[in-house]
């Protein structure tokens, strides 16, 4: 129990520190988002530039950006503590939370599923390459995935778009759902979303399988040399039991660490894929808000990113004793 509490305090500390950095960084540019946004709005509507100074000042005081930095910081931290991410400059008067929450499910669904699929396939493939050294199909397929792993996944994505969308026309090239599809929870809508997700998901899965397989392979080699594997064999256990309960069960622990960390970085890691596929996720949102120096929206996106990383780390910490009974004993081990 003490351990859980300790972890919680640490998590809050990490979030606070990261949020502070996140607050400062975008404010170090000398661009003024409000001025730019107003100039753009005026340009769009063709209105006159007279009085823009006053408008900028008016909006600045509304957003609080005319205040000294430390005052902005304090008021922001106060808002964050109440889970208030403020108002977007770009999408004024929409709230930041509205946009973040609209984008988040897309990213989580796409990247979460893709990561999980590649983890399962990659881990099993990696384990099998060691377990079945004689298998001909494994000897061919695994190196192929290793090569794919060496190519950045957005490049894989571009190739996939070219082949399966632009050339063959099997899948849509972009967007999260079809134009004119009504986004309710009907089968048509869900089917449409999956249909659109296949190519971006594929690009991630193809690129990630090799990495999972490679690290699992390394762990399996280590585990195979352990005395308990030899004893398991001497017991004449079934191949299936030795593979799952003895080899994979011991080799998978570091894989799960990586998996949980990967979930934590889903939100940030998706920017390039989402850009390539114009996917309505948090990556695209973050990209757009950076282009416009929308302090509040940037902060909102990155804050979600920080939250997911911190929460995954904590989950990992609490999960680890379940994976490895040796950690359950608690406290430091002394020789």
């Amino acid at each position: 129990m003490v351990r859980v509490l300790h972890r919680l305090v640490l998590m809050v500390l990490v979030i606070w520190l990261a949020a502070s950095i996140n607050f400062l960084l975008p404010r170090m540019t000398d661009r003024d988002p409000i001025e730019e946004r107003l100039a753009q709005a005026l340009g769009d509507s063709g209105g006159s530039a007279i009085g823009i100074e006053e408008m900028v000042a008016e909006y600045q005081s509304k957003f609080g950006t005319d205040q000294p930095l430390w005052k902005q910081y304090i008021s922001m931290m106060g808002d964050i503590a109440q889970f208030d991410l403020g108002v977007s400059i770009n999408y004024f008067p929409d709230r930041v939370a509205t946009h973040v929450m609209a984008a988040l499910p897309w990213s989580i669904a796409l990247l979460g599923t893709a990561t999980l699929i590649s983890f399962v396939i990659g881990t099993i493939l990696g384990a099998l390459t060691i377990w079945r050294r004689k298998s001909a199909w494994l000897a061919r397929i695994v190196p192929l995935f290793m090569i794919l792993a060496a190519i950045p996944f957005y490049l894989v994505g571009l190739v996939l778009v070219y082949v399966f969308s632009l050339s063959l026309g099997w899948f849509p090239p972009a967007r999260g759902y079809g134009v004119g599809v009504n986004m309710d929870w009907s089968w048509t809508a869900i089917g449409n979303v999956i249909y659109h997700a296949i190519l971006p998901a594929m690009s991630i899965v193809l690129a990630a399988i090799g990495i999972w397989a490679l690290s699992m392979r390394g762990m399996m080699v280590t585990v195979q040399g352990e005395d308990y594997m030899n004893f398991a064999r001497a017991k004449g256990l079934s191949n299936r039991r030795m593979f799952w309960r003895y080899a994979v069960r011991n080799a998978i622990t570091p894989q799960i660490t990586t998996l949980v960390l990967a979930f934590g970085t889903i939100v940030g890691g998706a920017i390039l894929v989402e850009r390539v596929f114009v996917y309505p996720g948090i990556g695209t949102l973050l990209y757009n808000s950076v282009l416009l120096v929308d302090y509040f929206l940037i902060f909102g996106c990155v804050f979600i990113l920080i939250l997911t990383v911190a929460v995954s780390l904590m989950i990992l910490d609490l999960l680890y004793p379940l994976l490895d009974p040796r950690i359950r004993a608690g406290g430091e081990q002394h020789g």
């Binding site: 352990e226 005395d227 308990y228 004893f231 001497a234 309960r245 003895y246 069960r249 011991n250």
Partner: peptide, 16 residues
């Protein structure tokens, strides 16, 4: 025919 291994320190599966 059964085998009693050398170095039983590490002969048991640590997670079972």
């Amino acid at each position: 025919i059964a085998y009693i291994p050398q170095g039983a320190m590490n002969s048991l599966n640590p997670v079972m």
